[in-house]
Amino acid sequence: MANHKNIEYVGDSRVPAKRVQNISPSYAEFPGKNEPFWPNFLLKEWMVGAVALTAFLILTVSHPSPLTDKADPTDTSFTPLPDWYFLFLYQLLKFPWASGDWVLIGIIAIPGLAFGGLLLAPFLDRGPERRASKRPVATSLMLIGIISVVYLTWAAMDEHKAHEAAKHPQGEAAAPSQPQGGEQPAADNPGAAIWQKQTNCQGCHGAEMQGGMGPALTSIGGTLSAEEIKDVIQNGRGNMPPGMFTGSDAELDQLVEYLASLK
């Protein structure tokens, strides 16, 4: 115990005047190859961080994060998909014995037991033994938990993929077999030639459909159907005046078909 009466302070503060030496201790005498955290250990550990950061940045640069269309509460065809680390809970609720009348099993009993067990693990598994192989009950419960979570996550993803594929039968499957994809109709489509003559349209949407006063049309087929496009051309919409198209009805149909093909 320090004798408080004999401590000398800095001025009238409560900071002792006696300095602590600013040098690393040596752990050379310790059993095993111990070392101080700073600087010895951190001078090697930054490499682990650097490897992790590099992997992380490669992932980030090679995969831009996804952004679907703006939220539209009236869209009934959108299939909800929670973030992947919630999928196991989501999938659990699809089992008939964990949903409907039994939903309390799915939302309370099973997650409650699993997470409650985890939370209280130190008080449930109280023996002195630390090795996983000497704690068969704790270890096997954890392994069962991990396997179930991995399986449920996988099942949820699999179901979602199957569901999406059923929704757009030719969608993703057809795209790769058509090498040029969306660009292809541009050159040989008769609609392209008709577009070239529409100086009225080009005034607002740009000669290359890149947009200007009006929106870009380069992928308008993804947003509007052929009928909707035709309606906008004939009747106008917002700031767009009606009747700007010049040419025959047959040419109008060709242009509409061309625009609708731009996805």
Partner: peptide, 13 residues
Amino acid sequence: RDIADHEVPEHVN
């Protein structure tokens, strides 16, 4: 110093 000097034992290094 408390953070800097804590020992890192062999079995976690």
